[in-house]
Amino acid sequence: MRMIRGLWRWRHNPLRRKTDVVESYAALIAALIILLAAPAVGWATGSLAQGALVKAAREQRAERHLISATVVKVLPHPPIDSDPETATATASDAHRRVFAQWTGPDGSRHEGALGTHPGADPGERFHLWTDGHGRPMGRPLDTATATTHAVLAGIGAGAATAGLVDGARRLVVWRLMRRRYAQWDIAWERAGQDWGRADADS
């Protein structure tokens, strides 16, 4: 709004320069592009990301299988770092490492070290995501997470567009300022030739 008021103020001002008008129009055009293009880019990016992520989530759910594994034995915890400055809590601290056995969706038998909930004991069964051959996999992407990622992608794209447009406006203003300074130098040099002379006004 301040940019529009500035443009209106310069319309009939006798002191306005061509660079002032160009700067005001650059600000107005940048504001319009930010208001119109940035949301459109954000929406388009979010829609594309949503479609790709939902498709990926669907494919993951089709390729991954939730099966049951049996705890054979609990594996010892790694040694705890006694230095409080270097010791950090990680996601693995909330899990218990166990040696487990499971049967894949294709009937193949597997065993190996896995992470499960902290209270897991030998003989206990827990859920595990695997591929079609029984290899452990991560949990498939769910629709809510896909939507969240798509929204964040759209916001990021819109913000990046606004930043690029504002950067272009600042570049135009910088070029105009350099031109103004050059014009001032020329005008001052001309005025300086008669500066202090008694007949300067004659």
Score class of each variant (00 low, 15 high):
I29T: 06
R11W: 04
R2T: 00
A38N: 00
A49R: 14
L66E: 03
G46M: 12
R9W: 02
E23Q: 14
T70Q: 12
V41I: 13
K73W: 08
H77F: 06
V71P: 11
T70S: 14
V22F: 07
I33W: 05
I33E: 05
R2Y: 00
K73G: 10
T45V: 02
R61A: 06
H65A: 02
R17L: 14
T70Y: 15
A69K: 04
S68P: 05
Q60G: 05
H12V: 10
G51Q: 13
K18S: 15
K55V: 09
P78M: 02
V54F: 13
G42C: 09
E23L: 00
G51F: 10
A26I: 00
H12S: 08
V22T: 11
P79M: 07
A26E: 00
A31Q: 10
H77C: 14
V41M: 05
I29M: 15
R11H: 01
A56E: 06
P14W: 03
V54Y: 11
L15E: 12
E23Y: 00
T19N: 11
A40F: 08
N13Y: 01
A37N: 03
A52E: 07
V41E: 09
V21S: 04
A37V: 09
V71T: 04
V54I: 15
P39V: 05
W8G: 09
P78A: 07
A56Y: 13
D20T: 01
S47E: 15
V41T: 11
E63F: 06
P39W: 08
P76K: 10
P39F: 00
R17D: 04
M3Y: 15
R64D: 04
A57T: 03
G6H: 12
K73N: 02
L48F: 12
W8C: 01
T70E: 13
T70W: 11
D20M: 11
V41S: 06
S24N: 00
L7Y: 15
A26R: 05
I34Y: 04
H65G: 00
K18N: 14
Y25H: 12
R61W: 06
R2I: 02
V74E: 00
S47I: 12
P76C: 02
L15H: 13
H77E: 10
R17A: 07
S68Q: 11
Q60P: 00
S24M: 10
Q50R: 13
A40P: 00
E63C: 02
H65D: 01
A57Q: 01
P79F: 13
I4N: 14
S68M: 08
T70L: 01
L28D: 09
R11D: 03
R16T: 07
V22H: 01
A57K: 08
A27K: 08
I29H: 09
N13K: 15
V22P: 10
I67G: 11
